[in-house]
Design a protein around this nucleic acid. Structure first.
Lengths: 242, 242
DNA sequence: GGAGTTTTGGTTGACATGACCATTACCGTG
DNA sequence: CACGGTAATGGTCATGTCAACCAAAACTCC
């Protein structure tokens, strides 16, 4: 039956709670990390979960995601936040019918985990630990996290969102380490430089140089992020070669 | 405030209706078409809309999408259906708070538009007409359709879903026309053949040949669809070269 | 039979890519 | 301060990829 051609009574429809979950990914110690909160109440008490909250009727989904991100991290604007999937399996929340719309946010390293409101129950966990089950997640959040990482992996190839992981100014080695960590590959430093610089508009030189690390080495040039292409990446994902 | 660490009363949360909309795309006359239904009731009466319906509490979102697809087209299994985005802007439905989860289904040409239940109000419309506003769509369905087409465009590159547009057995010219229509490009027939056949497992030869069209020409080999890769396509999207 | 059309096979030259070496410019240490 | 170590940067080169193009094959229609 085609719904649109019939009349209906709004009170007849099953009511759902709609939540927005936000997978906050960041780079720490050359590994991908996710911001998780520890549950303090009954279902899955003590387990870790992806932060989120209820959508309000007067805001868009994107606004709800931004609000949640702000409540969790204190960050406000200019953050790379993208919706990637909705989850509505019956029983995914034992209490009621909940459909959740999941977002992924890519942040540069914040340092102190969740320095905002409820710091005692929030932490940055290595993605590998959460996905392998070493850190068990509540609800269907392991699935959600896995999908989020997949999304970032292809976004890195398609939209070149790698700079979102980095501070406003960065070296090419730092940019390369983002690709290496997210894709789990090894990239040749010289070839990486050539390809990134060949695509003009991707990164802009600042003229300044970074201080070398404790191990020494020639000081690297500092770059700013340029525009991001919508499609057709200069960099292509390869097989894993760790 | 971190929601998970507080207790709450389920009756306090805003209730939403959750619907599943399904964008059915198919290839007709070498152009991309979408299945639309004509609305018969008040909001946007007479305008065209993407078919959809309410999610039931006891089914998953994917099941709801399959059910809707079956109700609209009579097709049951083996159809390429993928969720791509949720929409929840306040006021997107003037009657109530509705969050919709949108799916895209890629079908081979069905011939008679929506031969199933409510045929009088369903039609295959060229995507170009719907996106250009020549055929105005109800609600925010123009946005949804645009996102669906974008999704299919990149899926064609990433997952090689092109064979879903075609009958079980097809020629390389037909396969090529899918890429040309969806990407709006021109591809060289000889080069296309080489690349498709180079990637083994993508298509399998059947040994049979197709009858040439009315214009004549050498009879083309018939192929079956092979596996679809998850990532790393043999074919790469290019600039538009019509 | 001949012109037209489409598929299929082959060649070629331009360009992209990856492996690798060399140089530069810093670090710590003695 | 000279020296070995390290990382960034610059260059070369062999290989692979890809698009453009040509030509043969095999059909239809007239």
């Amino acid at each position: 039956m085609v719904m649109e051609t019939t009349t209906y009574d709004p009170s007849e429809f099953p009511a759902f709670a709609v939540t927005v979950d936000i997978v906050v990914l960041t780079m720490a110690k050359a590994r991908l990390h996710v911001l998780l909160v520890q549950r303090g109440v009954d279902p899955f008490e003590g387990m870790w979960a992806i932060p989120g909250g209820f959508k309000r009727p007067d805001e868009t989904l994107d606004e709800a995601a931004q609000r949640e991100l702000n409540e969790e991290t204190g960050l406000d604007g200019g953050v790379d936040v993208r919706q990637f999937r909705a989850y509505g399996n019956p029983g995914r929340d034992p209490r009621m019918n909940i459909v959740t719309v999941a977002y992924v946010a890519v942040l540069r390293d914040i340092g102190t985990p969740a320095a905002s409101t409820d710091a005692a129950a929030a932490a940055l966990i290595p993605v590998e630990d959460a996905l392998s089950g070493r850190v068990p997640l509540a609800f269907d959040h392991a699935t959600i996290l896995g999908d989020a990482v997949d999304r970032v992996r292809t976004d890195l190839e398609l939209t070149g969102t790698a700079t979102a992981f980095l501070p406003p100014t960065f070296t090419l080695a730092e940019l390369r380490s983002v690709y290496e960590a997210v894709w789990n590959v090894h990239l040749d430093a010289a070839n990486f430089r050539k390809r990134v610089l060949a695509e003009d508009g991707w990164v802009h030189p600042t003229g300044r140089r970074a201080r070398p690390g404790a191990a020494g080495g020639k000081p690297a040039e500092l770059f700013r992020a340029g525009r991001r292409w919508k499609h057709g990446s200069p960099l292509r994902r390869r097989k894993a070669t760790p």
